[in-house]
Amino acid sequence: MAAFYWGRRGGDTGKGLSLGGGGGDGGDDDYYFGDFDDGDEGDEGGLFRRRIILPELFDHRFLDAVLNEWQKTMMDLPAGFRQAYEMGLVSSALIVRFLAINTRPTTERFISRRLPQGLSREFIGRMIADPAFLYRLLLEQAATIGCSVWWEIKGRGERIKQEWDLALINVLTAMTCKAIVVWSLAPCRSYGNTLPI
């Protein structure tokens, strides 16, 4: 394993730089990410690539810097989120997730703006806690629809043409129950409205 390494020759870090790359270091240019085995492409991409994770910083200087980067102020945050910000309960990563959902024209923002206020707050709280929540919900719904329709066709057989309304009610009931279960069990970081003192 190779650790983070600034240079091999002690204080000789400025000498021997080559614009052509490679130089005379034996082809070992990648000290930080480690040496890979033959045929291993490292972290070039794919499903299991290395992800850059935003640190959970709670210092107000970092939080203000994040807000400035998005051209927002503390007063642009919702009341509950603003109170959690003032109390130091919100990290820089949470603010980035909230602003990414709430300021960019995304599917999540479209859905949250069409829901009633309480449901919208809970939906955004679930998206902040788990950015893949919407995809999980859609995947569960697709699996539920597929399995329910298959079960109804298998169970009813030739009667499916006469009893399609009952089959449809069963499929919709299964979809609703699955959506309620996924919604209830999903992690949530919801900051509600503040109560007047």
Rank of each mutant, 00 (worst) to 15 (best):
Q83S: 10
D165I: 11
D130I: 06
F98H: 04
I153Y: 09
G14E: 14
D59Y: 07
L67P: 01
T144W: 01
V90F: 04
I111L: 10
A167H: 02
L168R: 13
Q71A: 15
I111N: 03
G27T: 06
T103F: 05
R126F: 01
F48N: 09
T107C: 10
G42W: 06
I95Q: 00
D28M: 11
L172E: 09
I111Q: 04
A186W: 00
N170P: 03
L115P: 03
L119P: 04
N193D: 13
S148C: 09
Q83W: 09
P131H: 01
W183H: 04
Y135M: 12
L67T: 01
T106N: 06
V96L: 06
R61L: 08
C188N: 15
G118N: 10
F81C: 00
A84D: 03
M1H: 11
F36W: 13
E108Q: 06
G27C: 08
G20M: 14
D29C: 08
Y31G: 10
F36C: 11
T194I: 09
F36D: 15
F58N: 07
I180Y: 14
R9Y: 08
D40M: 05
Y32E: 15
F33A: 09
R156W: 06
R121C: 03
V90W: 00
F4Y: 12
P78V: 00
N68G: 12
L139V: 14
D64Y: 01
L47F: 11
D43M: 07
G46L: 04
S190Q: 14
D29H: 08
S184A: 07
T106Q: 03
L168G: 09
D30T: 06
I111Y: 07
L185A: 11
K72E: 08
T13V: 13
F33I: 07
W6Y: 13
D165W: 11
D30W: 08
E122T: 05
V149E: 03
S148F: 02
P187C: 04
G88L: 07
G118T: 08
I169S: 09
G11Y: 05
G7T: 15
E163Y: 07
S190D: 14
P116C: 05
